[in-house]
Write a protein that binds this DNA or RNA. Structure first.
Length: 642
DNA sequence: CAGTACATAAACACAG
DNA sequence: CCTGTGTTTATGTACT
């Protein structure tokens, strides 16, 4: 790629060659630079001026032509000796050589900067759009911040060179050549990293706006390893003024004053020089510039630092590429290419969140609790391809009214809840279950099949992170549901009142037609033998078809836990209630049967079921599980923490 | 389009 | 008076 029309100083060609030349030039540049500098030192007295363009001229494009050509041609074949030859043949003055070298370096540094900046910006954008979990973002952020510091150092070097070039102060200071190389990682404290991160993001925004959104997303796919960035305005100085910090390295920089105004020099902050390992105190920006010119001139130390930084950059580049690859795989896995965001019930959003907030292993496509359209395709990973990576999916903690559009949402949730129980505990995602189902579940999970209101509250907050906020709302809803639905029976107790579930009423609650395939009934038995995503999908499919699950095996199956069992009962209730006595199938009802509903809601049907002279019997054998629940109650429910 | 289920908000009563 | 509990009504949304 170095042999193509690289010498044309156009943006596109320059950008293309820049990347190609990067790796080669990285290796050869400093070598050549050293040789050239040696040569310069030797030839310093000759002072032969032979009609080269002045380095101060405004025509930066023309000025860049020579270095571009040198930079692009030499890396292929040049050796230090050849470099010398070239330099001699061209009969350049030391100043001119210096200019050339600086321009080469500037160009190369620009290339590196742009390359990494583009990749960095893309990654930042992806991270932000994806709401990557904090851990991953932290890693990426640290990497990028480190990268940014490296790039800023390079920028400063470049700017420094250019300023020197402009002022005609291009002299080598041999005395500095022997200064020891300082560790580059020095002085990288977290606060600096944070600041850098902020700078990066802010400049990214401005850059995106200024560059008309051209490059940011395109580069996201090519990132660091991009071979041909589509937009190269960032590299060439034409848009330097729009690039914020990137404008620093433009040879044309008309304004040190601008920097003085903004005092936003990447290498200057909090009154200290942020050159790696320097941390020299500079009162003001002017002194800082002086310090830069004096201490961080183009010398052995600086070049060595740059060299090390380049190696660091290379490492980061590799790592970034890996991370990018991983991210790509994640995005692919999560079906980012979604077309219809609203087409799917909520559990998909949940999965997206669970994937992003928990371990990736939990995010296998099979675990998507979406509802397969047919029972025969329960484990098809990508059926509807919903948008799982959306900001709404990550911030759907607001009390948005989002009932599951599916009429059997409760039934679907039976498997879903069991499958994502841990997820709901941790992710602030609204469970796609009705309050009634949840209340019933809470009650049925209790050993006595009865709970006080407060215990129900605790169950909600314990089982669902979503219910740790907006307590007033959902608690009111719980009370409302308890009062409204006849399936919830209030029973006076010694300790007060407890709530129980009238299964018959609950199953009466939602008369639905049975349209499912009865052959799937046995599938549920086999399916919940394995607590696998397939299990969830199968059950979800069955739930979707309202298959009755009158299987005693489903009861008390520890594989899916009580939650799933109860929800399976819920599933039973979802279908047309043909059997009026399957409420007896619930094995755990016996304690409740002794209860006496003090308060019977209007039109109490079949009071024979709750005949009550023994009403207070069970209250005597107070279950220690209540104390067990108390343990959770003691936990501060930070629902009011917004 | 009507009916139903559900969520949400709010008013109210009552007891501790 | 405050808080928690419980009931009821109203309203809006989504689905059938």
């Amino acid at each position: 790629c170095l042999s193509s029309p690289l010498l044309a100083p156009t943006s596109s060609s320059t950008s293309q060659i820049l990347y190609c030349a990067n790796s080669i030039f990285k290796i050869l540049f400093f070598q050549a630079l050293q040789v050239a500098r040696q040569f310069l030192l030797q030839q310093q007295q000759q002072q032969q001026v032979s009609g080269l363009k002045s380095p101060k001229r405004n025509d930066k494009q023309a000025a860049l032509q020579v270095p571009v050509s040198v930079a692009m041609m030499t890396p292929q074949v040049i050796t230090p000796q050849q470099m010398q030859q070239i330099l001699q043949q061209q009969v350049l003055t030391p100043q001119q050589l210096q200019v050339l070298l600086q321009q080469q370096q500037a160009l190369m540094l620009q290339q590196v900067i742009v390359s990494f900046t583009a990749g960095k910006m893309a990654i930042i954008g992806v991270l932000m759009s994806l709401n990557i979990p904090p851990q991953q973002q932290q890693v990426a952020t640290q990497q990028l911040a480190f990268q940014q510091q490296l790039l800023q150092m390079q920028q400063l070097q470049q700017q420094h060179l250019l300023s020197l070039q402009r002022q005609g102060l291009l002299t080598i200071q041999p005395g500095q050549a022997t200064l020891p190389l300082q560790p580059l990682a020095q002085g990288m404290i977290p606060t600096e990293l944070q600041q850098l991160w902020k700078e990066v993001t802010s400049s990214h925004t401005a850059e995106e706006i200024a560059s008309n959104n051209h490059s940011s997303l395109d580069l996201s796919t090519t990132c660091v390893s991009s071979s041909a960035p589509s937009k190269t305005s960032l590299i060439i100085n034409s848009h330097a003024s729009t690039n914020g910090q990137l404008s620093v390295h433009t040879p044309k920089r008309e304004s040190l004053s601008h920097e003085e105004h903004s005092h936003s020099h990447p290498l200057y902050g909090h009154g200290v020089c942020k050159w790696p390992g320097c941390e020299a105190v500079c009162e003001d920006f002017q002194s800082f510039l002086k310090h830069l010119n004096n201490e961080h001139a183009l010398d052995d130390r600086s070049t060595a630092q740059c060299r090390v930084q380049m190696q660091v950059v290379q490492q980061l580049e590799l790592q970034l590429a890996k991370d990018k690859e991983r991210l790509q795989a994640m995005m692919t896995h999560l079906h980012v290419k979604s077309t219809e965001p609203k087409a799917t019930p909520q559990p998909l959003n949940l999965v997206s969140s669970v994937t992003l907030s928990k371990t990736a292993s939990e995010a296998s496509p099979q675990s998507l609790p979406h509802t397969p359209t047919t029972p025969t395709t329960p484990i098809t990973p990508v059926i509807q391809g919903p948008s799982v990576i959306t900001t709404t999916s990550m911030h759907n903690v607001e009390p948005i009214r989002r009932r599951c559009p599916n009429k059997y949402n409760v039934a679907i949730s039976s498997a879903d809840l069991a499958q994502n129980q841990e997820f709901y505990k941790n992710a602030e995602v609204r469970p796609p279950f009705t309050y009634a189902s949840l209340i019933r579940q809470a009650i049925l999970e209790s050993p006595e099949k009865q709970l006080t209101l407060n215990e129900i509250y605790n169950w909600f907050t314990r089982m669902f992170a979503y219910f740790r906020r907006n307590a007033a709302t959902w608690k009111n809803a719980v009370r409302h549901n308890l009062s409204l639905h006849k399936c919830f029976v209030r029973v006076e107790n010694v300790k007060g009142a407890v709530w129980t579930v009238d299964e018959l009423e609950f199953q009466k609650r939602r008369p639905q037609k049975i349209s499912g395939n009865p052959s799937l009934i046995k599938n549920i038995q086999t399916s919940h033998t394995y607590c696998t995503p397939l299990n969830a999908a199968l059950q979800a499919s069955m739930a979707d078809n309202s298959i009755p699950l009158y299987t005693t095996a489903s009861m008390g199956n520890p594989t899916l836990g009580n939650l799933a069992n109860a929800m399976r009962e819920d599933l039973n209730g979802a279908m047309e209630h043909t059997n009026s006595n399957e409420s007896d199938s619930s094995p755990g009802r016996s304690p409740m049967q002794a209860m006496h509903p003090v308060h019977v809601k209007e039109e109490p049907l079949d009071p024979d079921e709750n005949e009550g002279p023994l009403s207070l019997v069970t209250t005597a054998n107070h279950s220690p599980d209540f104390d067990h629940d108390r343990d959770y109650e003691d936990e501060p429910v930070n629902e009011d923490i917004e």
